[in-house]
Each structure stands twice: as structure tokens, then as C-alpha cells.
């Protein structure tokens, strides 16, 4: 893990360009939660890499004062995996929209979860393709009228929380842009989790979704963090609540210890690869090769 820096950091140490999201966009709270989390954890900005995808959410790398890769659509996770394996001393965070995460890049989510790559995946889930002006997304509710579903969306949505549990997630949380303090805690604990941490964020789109507003969500979100009886270490409890409530729940839903990918890879260097000398021990390699190819 990254060593804390000496002076106390604030979210301002992680600021960059001014955000251009629409007024009222839930993504502002996500950005702030990332900045606050990194500051609380005392992470040096140059030792954090944020990887984003395409769409409104993808712009977040421009606004975060850390290293960043703004990738192509849906591929945040494999790019972030490459960064983490190249330098396991870095804190790697991937941020995506629901189109990135549950549409074009859904394949990668399942595999990143089963690999348990040590990174934090924050999904800014607004249930709409905002940057292309409001078409349906994989988490749009059936019946919703959008420019690409003028007679109402017909498909069953992706159920992110059930999906993540089924794939074997070792850290699963859902936060809401309507509760920035809790969201920050969930992201912060996700970063501290040694393994793949998924934080799905209800991040309302005030421009294209006039139905699922902050108020609409507030009425239906059940907060497990406020329930002392809820045990996030109990997989059955997690299954029960996402089975019953689907996405109408926030808080830390499940956490289980497992060895992260970089700890499981056989022979993997303890020091970051980026700091290792380039040249292999030629004599040792030559012995292997003489044995394999020599005559």
C-alpha cells in the first residue's frame, strides 16, 4: 500500500480541471467522494491512478488531480489491471458509467471480480446514456420513455448488485450521490480493501431522468449501514437483501477476505515491476533455454 504523506491532505489536493457536468449531476458527489477518500487515506496524489471510460462519467479523470487514463468505452478494468500489475505500489481506481460497466464492458466486470484485482471500481450509475442525450442504458427501468425507447424500454435491466455477488465480489457496496458522507466512507473502505472493491453509486441524471430523482431514491433506499443487525461478512444476508430489494439498498453489503491477484500470481515480484531492472539474470535464463532448445 501507498505510504501516507506527512502533511494533512484535503480534497483540494486532488482537484484539477473544473467539472463540466450539468448542474445537479450526481457525478459531482462521486468526484468529491473520491477526492475526500484519497485525502482521508493520506494518499499522495502522484501515487494514485484513476482510470475512466466514455460518457459523462469518463470525464472524471480530467477533474481529479491524480494520474489518470481516460480510456475507450467499457475498458476501464483491463487498463486498470495493467496499471496495477505494472506497479503494485500504486492505488488504482477505475471509474465508469452504467454503459461502460454494465453494457459494453460487462464482460470485464465479471472477470475482474473473479481475478480479484486489487483496485476500486466506482460506477456512476444514472440509468441513462446522458452524453449521447438520453437513450436507454442497461440499468434503465422497463417502461421508461427515452429517445431510443419512444414506446417505453422493453428490456429487463441488469441487476448490478446481484450480478456482483454471483460473480464472487469480495467487496460490494452501493452508495448514493444523495448521501456524500456515506459515499465517501464506502469508497474509502473500498480503496483500503485488498482486492476488487465494487462501489455502485446511484448518481441521478437531472437532465434526462425526471423520474428517478434524488427525492425518488431517498424514499426507497434502505441503508444497511444504519442497521446494527446487518452483518456485511455474511454472504447469506447480502443475498437476502439484494434478492428482496434489488438496487433499493445502500451501504456496505458484503466484504470477504481473499488474496488479491498480485498476491496469488506465482513468482510475482514483491517490488513494483516498474521499479525492477529490465534485464533478466541472463545466465539463469540461458540455463533454462539451453535445456529447452539446446542440442
Amino acid at each position: 500500500m501507498t505510504a501516507p504523506v506527512a502533511t494533512a491532505l484535503t480534497h483540494k489536493d486532488f482537484a484539477a480541471e473544473r467539472a463540466t457536468w450539468c448542474p445537479g449531476c450526481g457525478d459531482f458527489a462521486v468526484l468529491r467522494a473520491l477526492q475526500e477518500s484519497c485525502a482521508h487515506l493520506g494518499l499522495a496524489p502522484h501515487r494514485v491512478v484513476l482510470v475512466s471510460g466514455i460518457g459523462c462519467s469518463g470525464k472524471i479523470t480530467s477533474y481529479m488531480g491524480t494520474y489518470g487514463v481516460h480510456t475507450h468505452h467499457g475498458r476501464t478494468l483491463p487498463v486498470a489491471t495493467g496499471v496495477k500489475l505494472a506497479n503494485r505500489g500504486l492505488t488504482v481506481i477505475a471509474a465508469a458509467g452504467d454503459g461502460d460497466a454494465y453494457g459494453i464492458g460487462l464482460n470485464h466486470l465479471i472477470h475482474a471480480i473473479r481475478r480479484d484485482v486489487d483496485l476500486t471500481y466506482v460506477i456512476m450509475d444514472n440509468g441513462v446514456y446522458g452524453n449521447t442525450k438520453g437513450q436507454t442504458s442497461p440499468t434503465t427501468a422497463p417502461g421508461t420513455l427515452t429517445p431510443s425507447s419512444p414506446r417505453g424500454a422493453v428490456d429487463e435491466p441488469v441487476h448490478p448488485l446481484r450480478l456482483a455477488l454471483a460473480a464472487g465480489a469480495t467487496y460490494l457496496a452501493q452508495g448514493s450521490s444523495g448521501d456524500p458522507a456515506q459515499l465517501t466512507r464506502l469508497v474509502e473502505r473500498g480503496i483500503a480493501h485488498r482486492g476488487f472493491a465494487l462501489v455502485n453509486v446511484i448518481s441521478p441524471c437531472p437532465t434526462y431522468d425526471r423520474v428517478r430523482t434524488y427525492a425518488w431514491w431517498r424514499e426507497r433506499l434502505h441503508n444497511v449501514d444504519a442497521d446494527p443487525a446487518y452483518d456485511a461478512g455474511d454472504a447469506r444476508a447480502a443475498w437476502e437483501i439484494v434478492g428482496a430489494r434489488d438496487t433499493d439498498v445502500i451501504g456496505l453489503l458484503y466484504r470477504a477476505p481473499r488474496r488479491a491477484l498480485d498476491e496469488r500470481l506465482p513468482g510475482f515480484a514483491a517490488a513494483p515491476l516498474a521499479a525492477e531492472p529490465l534485464r533478466p539474470d541472463v545466465d539463469r535464463v540461458r540455463r533454462i533455454l539451453d535445456d529447452e532448445y539446446g542440442l
Binding site: 482510470v51 487514463v69 483491463p78 487498463v79 486498470a80 495493467g82 464482460n107
Partner: peptide, 14 residues
Amino acid sequence: AALSVVIGAGYAGV
């Protein structure tokens, strides 16, 4: 994913 991993590593200097 394969090439994306390579991009991530290349960005990080490996």
C-alpha cells in the same frame, strides 16, 4: 482486454 492490460502497463512504465 489483453491489449488494454498492455496499455495500462505501458502507461505505468512496464
